[in-house]
Amino acid sequence: MYQVGNLVKELTEKHGRLRESLMPILQGIVERHSYLTDEAMVEVAKELDISAAEVYGTASFYTFLDTKVRGKYVIRICKTITCSMKGKGEIIETIEDMLKIKVGETTSDRMFSLLETNCIGWCHKAPAILINDLPYTELSPEKVVEIIKGYMHK
């Protein structure tokens, strides 16, 4: 769990306090901390003068606005048809072996979370993943190991 501190205030300064500011604010929190804590959502609700249930309702609609604990680096593997056909299974196994977590889990040091997602728009270079915002494509087990190693040493 992280402390939101002044982040929500900073984000509302930047994006405003209208209902339409909600998404950019939540996105800003996730960009910094990977997921939304209850505390963060309540803070946002207070700042925008809307109910916390609505903040949660909106956040939980969007796959990337996680309300469960996530690691610093969120790995999302595309599970849609082309990636599935082109070796997504192998990539998952490789990452699961390497990080000792299953899909849906987070490493105990809170560095990595492994999730599946729907088509991320790189089907011609399948299989593809996102690590936080960055796409990695045309993956092989070897390639993905190298990529994740890079994040471990970041």
Binding site: D38, I50, A52, A53, V55, G57, S60, T67
Partner: peptide, 28 residues
């Protein structure tokens, strides 16, 4: 004007939920 309950999640998981599924006795 309370919105103690809202729609949460999408697709097959969509449901009516309080704030993060807290018990109704512990929300607004």
């Amino acid at each position: 004007y309370i919105s103690a309950i809202a729609v949460a999640n999408k697709g097959a998981h969509q449901k009516i939920s309080s704030f993060h599924d807290r018990p109704m006795s512990h929300v607004v």
